[in-house]
Nucleic acid binder design. Structure first.
Lengths: 136, 136
DNA sequence: TAAATACCTTAGTGCAATACTAACAACATG
DNA sequence: CATGTTGTTAGTATTGCACTAAGGTATTTA
């Protein structure tokens, strides 16, 4: 029920960029986001519009925030990235390379696969970078 | 030296379709290929042209054949698919689902990752479907 | 307050990949 | 030679991505 909704690579990058650095409590602005993504603002706006259409984010007076659905996607995405990274690094692949390769498809797996792959590598509490992996 | 060259999903599907059913010794024709891919011939021609540009296949009087480079790609692709499938099925994911999910990114991994992931799952001789996995 | 600055948005362009229909060419075989 | 299969071009459309240029809004500051 959650899925059907697929993301492109850019949309994935965008969702990550929006929620990254959530040390700051304020919603990210377009200018920062476009700097982070190394894209011009109009390009980012296009991506934001698509994500908005998909119900994953809201914009209001220049502020950008993921919706609840967007947050669910974000969390899945992050966990998926970290689990795949774990598998790759466990296999002996260089961390940076693992990270880069995994980034090209971590957004393609559904929840069920994610959960089974997690168990396969022992439901680790953190990825090779040391970032936390969460379970429900 | 081998890579830099990236494929799209469709190009991947096409390379697989060309070499699948290699029971027959004759090069595949456009009409069969487009039936197999469930696309109209002009669509397939576009894909073939791109693959030709990338040096992965040759066409001559309607016959389609992978070049040596194309064959190398094909073999890597097939092995990659089967290894990833193995990982997914070992994790408890349903075979059909594993196959489908893996198809969306099996063409994105480079040789080194493939070889390390193979070792990780014990260099199996066949995928869950029973099809052979080869090593150099 | 008027000007400057920063920021967001639209409009317009362009390209690559994907996919189609329609029309035409080439060829084989009855 | 007429018919049919097959391959190819040409033309159109859509989606995603990315940009520049221009215009609008808002805030700050001289």
């Amino acid at each position: 029920m959650l899925k059907q909704l697929t993301l492109t690579k850019r949309e994935r990058d965008c969702i990550l960029a929006i929620n990254e650095d959530s040390s700051i409590d304020f919603p990210i602005r377009l200018s920062q986001l476009s700097k982070k993504m190394k894209l011009k603002p109009p390009t980012v706006i296009e991506i934001l519009k698509r994500l908005e259409l998909k119900g994953l984010l809201k914009r209001e007076s220049g502020m950008i925030k993921l919706t609840d659905l967007g947050m669910t996607f974000y969390n899945n995405l992050v966990n998926c990235h970290r689990i795949l990274e774990t598998i790759f690094v466990d296999s002996g692949i260089d961390l940076d390379k693992a990270c880069k390769e995994v980034s090209s498809f971590d957004f393609m797996l559904d929840d069920e696969s994610l959960s089974k792959l997690s168990s396969f590598v022992g439901r680790p509490k953190a990825c090779p970078h040391g970032k936390p992996i969460t379970y429900r």
